[in-house]
Design a protein around this nucleic acid. Structure first.
Lengths: 372, 372
DNA sequence: TTTAGCACTCCATTAGATCGAGTGCCAGAG
DNA sequence: CTCTGGCACTCGATCTAATGGAGTGCTAAA
């Protein structure tokens, strides 16, 4: 009984050839074809025995009695984890990537270009998340008074990106007050990450709260102590901090990723089922599911792959997602990848995604971050 | 021979019932069904004769010998132009529209809401163009120095919208210079439409050019004359104007319209053909074709309809587009509409689009435009 | 352990048969 | 002249049966 020694080199090699064949043809692979494709000189009958074993292990699957074999998700998994021989990126593609990304104006532009290149060169869908805010540094903040107690907050980050948001204030502020507040915030928080600013601002407010409580308790000693640590915060500064708090509080950006080339997915037969296609596209426009998936990929750095149902999202059941995180200054700030049918040319896509991530990271690198 | 008097009331009424029936069923309508549906008490045979006439006129069409009749594009056109009895908007929908739009924060928000409501309430795709720049007024402009001779331009418009753009300058400007330039521009151009600003700025530059030429020709007299009209422009102002020119020069916004609910279109059988669907979605993501189409709708005010091939874009061959322009202060500034299969319930969609346009206009109205 | 042979299964394709919806046309009624 | 009933005909849709081929599983022998 071969069960003790099932996953020997030979069966693995056969699995590999089977998957390669299936990826290129899209047809279930029969024992005869496999016998010819593999270098091992085996008869179809032998191959059939091996296939039976692989089927027992859940690595391949027969759509029906007299069809060949098709890889299962576990089969693909084993394949990409240990059987795959990655093909180096074609130099043509490398050139295109390099040119496209090095010419980009600002972060958003670079991300758009990356997404477009991913989708065009792979003929699948390309996706790139926006850099997460923990790693984005504040360069400059500005306030502008609007009508009805509303203030427009504009801030520029280290990636030359401009963000803006409208906040509601408790009273009307004069232009001078706003200017002063901005000056104050710029002097203290410029250069720190958005997330750090958010935390620091919260702390300031808490400290102030405490101080107030203490003062109202007329415990002069404690108030003195609290004040000792840092300079007294005057009314203007407090307003500034409050505004900053409103400005930086968690607003999961509406635009969390850039997706392009979705339409490429409509060409694949495994997605020609309208229901599947619809739920996939709905997932794309609802975004949150996709965001969650991509967030997971950000944790592990390097290339990450979800095959078929592995993602846990029904909409992605017949898709695979190949991602890689990209970094700025050795810190992971985002993820990019390719979405396509489970049957995709992993050996090409993996290095492709890998390189794109590296080049995008390089393009975003604050090479030119001269302070304001 | 009935050819002389073909389009009498009876045949028109039959055409109307046929189209209504076809719109609700999606099946070719036979003479028997039509005989029952219409109030005229006619035998199927008579109906068949009428149908033959309508077919000669190109208003209906038979998919094959023994099928019923289906309206052609001309049939639909006649129907919507003169046969249609519009149904008043359901009050439930009206309420939803009203609530959704009146709560919107800023222009972009309102547009997003409008698009979403259009798609959700019609179960088709909703589209809304951004207001065109001729009607958007500048409220405030600001410059921020970036690295490498780049300057970030931020401007706020009357719709509480913030736009930003990076321009490349010929030399590095100090923060003070930029501040001064912004002050200058704000004092002159604030409150004028973006388009007007663009034109005025161009004129300034031309005038200056002339003055320079004249001066270099040492024709003091002419120079004097040129100078007489307006105060001398100093170096700083010139820089400011040049920067403004860069900032406002035609950049057809990347984001010219907001489209939602595309996935609703995947449910319609007439779009279940993957090729059609793909080319339609490609048109959506390429945008320019759609923009051009919508621009056409902006010329005529009121509801505008493109049925099937009428649009001239192959991708829209099996779709209809019902649009209406929307206005702020009695000026048409944009278009909104619904995209669906040619077989759609025009009698409901038309008033729906009409009302949505009016409500969006109202929501965008500068009710709250207190100056800065 | 591998291989050849054989019976068997199942899909895909084709062809034929049948049914029903609907048309076109004609001849007769109003 | 208009409308209607009747009839032959067309065509799609659906079902059945037949056929071929690809591929398997099992067994027995090398």
């Amino acid at each position: 009984m071969s069960n003790t020694q099932v996953l020997n080199g030979r069966s693995l090699q056969l699995l590999k050839t089977l998957i390669e064949r299936y990826i290129s043809d899209g047809q279930p692979v029969g024992s005869r074809a496999l016998a010819k494709d593999s270098d091992l000189n085996l008869s179809p009958a032998t191959i059939r025995n091996v296939m039976a074993d692989l089927e027992d292990l859940g690595l391949v699957h027969s759509p029906h009695t007299s069809a060949g074999r098709v890889p299962t998700v576990s089969g693909y998994r084993l394949f990409v984890d240990s059987l795959l021989t990655v093909k180096p990126l074609e130099s043509k593609d490398l050139t295109l990537l390099h040119q496209g990304l090095s010419l980009s104006e600002d972060a958003h532009d670079a991300i758009g270009v990356a997404s477009r290149l991913l989708s065009e060169l792979t003929q699948m869908a390309g996706v790139v998340t926006l850099p997460k805010r923990e790693l984005v540094c504040l360069r400059h903040i500005e306030f502008l008074s609007l009508s009805h107690n509303r203030v427009l907050v504009i801030f520029v980050t280290n990636e030359q990106e401009v963000h803006n948001k409208i906040i509601h204030t408790s009273r009307v502020f004069s232009a001078a007050e706003l200017q002063q507040a901005a000056n104050y915030l710029n002097s203290i928080y410029s250069g720190r990450s958005l997330d750090a600013v958010r935390k620091a601002v919260l702390k300031e407010l808490q400290d102030d709260q405490e101080r107030m409580t203490n003062l109202s308790a007329t415990d002069v000693h404690l108030a003195e102590k609290a004040r000792a640590g840092k300079p007294e915060m005057n009314k203007g500064m407090l307003d500034a901090v409050k505004m900053a708090q409103l400005a930086f509080q968690q607003d999961r950006e509406k635009d969390d990723y850039v997706l392009t080339g979705e339409t490429n997915l409509m060409g694949f037969s495994e997605l020609s089922n309208m229901e599947r296609l619809k739920s996939l596209f709905e997932a794309f426009s609802q975004k949150q599911g996709v965001i969650h998936l991509l967030d997971q990929c950000m944790k592990a750095d390097g290339v990450q792959i979800f095959i078929g149902e592995e993602s846990g999202y029904r909409a992605f059941d017949h898709c695979s997602l190949v991602t890689s995180s990209y970094s700025v200054s050795d810190e992971v700030v985002g993820v990019l990848g390719v979405i396509g049918p489970t049957r995709m040319a992993y050996e090409k896509i993996i290095p492709f995604v890998d390189v794109t991530a590296k080049l995008l990271g390089a393009a975003l690198n604050p090479k030119s971050t001269t302070p304001l």
